[in-house]
Design a protein around this nucleic acid. Structure first.
Lengths: 239, 239
DNA sequence: CCTATAATTGTCCCTACGACATTTTTTGTC
DNA sequence: GACAAAAAATGTCGTAGGGACAATTATAGG
């Protein structure tokens, strides 16, 4: 009968074959009136030079959790940490990676493209790709097509019952901008009045005091209140 | 410049330290008027003899995906595959397992306790534990407490906008039983009328033709229609 | 046949969203 | 400086669907 201490001393992780484990993120943003995601051109095998999601292996020394991995990989490219990041789910299987049985923990994130544009502007191995133009980037690496599909569904679902899309806007934004972003993400028209009612009911925002000339009459600017949680509503928007 | 083929031939998974990867499931059922989960007493190190969720390592040879792993581990104990199984999320980190950096892909499942009782009856290392009595089983192995917490929240949330709890009932069931199960899971009273309206609107069920004497008037028995999907409603139930 | 009890159905209320009209505010033009 | 244009912001009313609870049935057991 061995003690737990003895057991742990004798334990070798690699005594049997283990799956590969990675982390990948779908970073969403709204730009030029369409919903886009960040894609990177793979510099290495496998699937070299295919387009892929930002991600990679866990750094066991430095990543406390896979959330850290996701943030680290996103920050490498954008230089900023996205204001919203949530785990989607894990995709696994024998066939999804030619190196062998693997699993990837997928995250999805939102950011205002203005805040993530620094280097991306001139990189030809990193690009904001509209979901409608994904077909021009096929085949994507691994099962990233499926991950993107799944993340998009989740984003749309959440947009129906929360204010999630504000994280695609800059720190200060107008209701009009929010309305637009919401419509772009959901890909359908939304009643302004319904949205504004929720906006106020959520109690997540405050006026900055300034306003913005969007063309005609100026619009009040709002920002997230400090430390608020994302509120969920009891009903979904829209038809 | 190496080709992908050459790269793959040279590739060794274990050239750098990798995390442990496991799969764990929270199997829910309703029994004796309370929501219970299946716990197993660990037979081995680490955390030997603590109570834990059913789960374990992926069998790279035989599991096509982690869903297979979850089912395999659940079936070992209950001899039946649960009628509902969904991925929750992955829990990871340096500290959650004394063997080292690890991740577990958590699933949650529902089953009618009547259908999973065969062996469990007399096993003293497997037990249906009410969520209210979890404190008597502490400390649970690893971070299983947190996983259970998270799974319970998800189950409750889904119960508010779907018929999910029917999977805790036998193949044929009455509306009264469904109402009870719903109330037990949500831990609050639910309007019968609202539930029945949804039940019909979902169009997921059909009468079996039989009825059941529950005491006074007999109640019609229903069953899931073949091949239906779980319907989601636009609003949440209840205050 | 009568009664108790649970199953099932009926009604009316209330809330939050949909549709769309109206008013307000600002910029720019002549 | 008055007016037109356009988006911002607000008002109003209809409606769907859940909440509350009352009313009606169907059975088992005397």
């Amino acid at each position: 009968m061995t003690s737990e201490k003895e057991f742990l001393n004798a334990y070798r992780n690699s005594d049997f074959p283990v799956p590969l484990l990675t982390v990948d993120s779908v970073l969403f943003s709204v730009k030029d009136a369409s919903l886009k995601i960040l894609l990177l051109k793979r510099a290495r095998h496998p699937h070299k030079s295919r387009w892929s999601l930002p991600g990679g292996f866990i750094d066991i020394e430095n990543d406390k959790t896979t959330r850290d991995t996701a943030i680290r990989k996103l920050t490498e490219k954008t230089q900023v940490t996205p204001p919203y990041l949530e785990q989607l789910r894990t995709f696994s299987g024998k066939a999804r990676d030619p190196r062998g049985w693997s699993a990837t923990i997928a995250y999805f994130a939102l950011i205002a493209h203005q805040e993530a544009n620094a280097i991306l502007q001139h990189a030809d191995d990193a690009q904001w790709v509209s979901l409608n133009e994904l077909e021009n980037y096929q085949p994507l690496a691994f099962d990233h097509q499926e991950i993107i599909q799944s993340a998009t569904e989740r984003l749309r679902q959440k947009a129906l019952y929360s204010m999630l899309p504000v994280f695609c806007l800059p720190k200060a934004f107008t209701l009009g901008q929010f309305h637009q972003v919401m419509q772009i993400i959901l890909d359908k028209s939304i009643q302004k009045k319904s949205l504004y009612r929720r906006f106020e009911a959520s109690d997540m925002f405050e006026e900055t005091g300034n306003s913005l000339a969007t063309g005609a009459r100026t619009a009040k600017l709002y920002r997230l209140k400090k430390g608020v949680e994302l509120v969920s509503f009891e009903r979904n928007l829209g038809q």
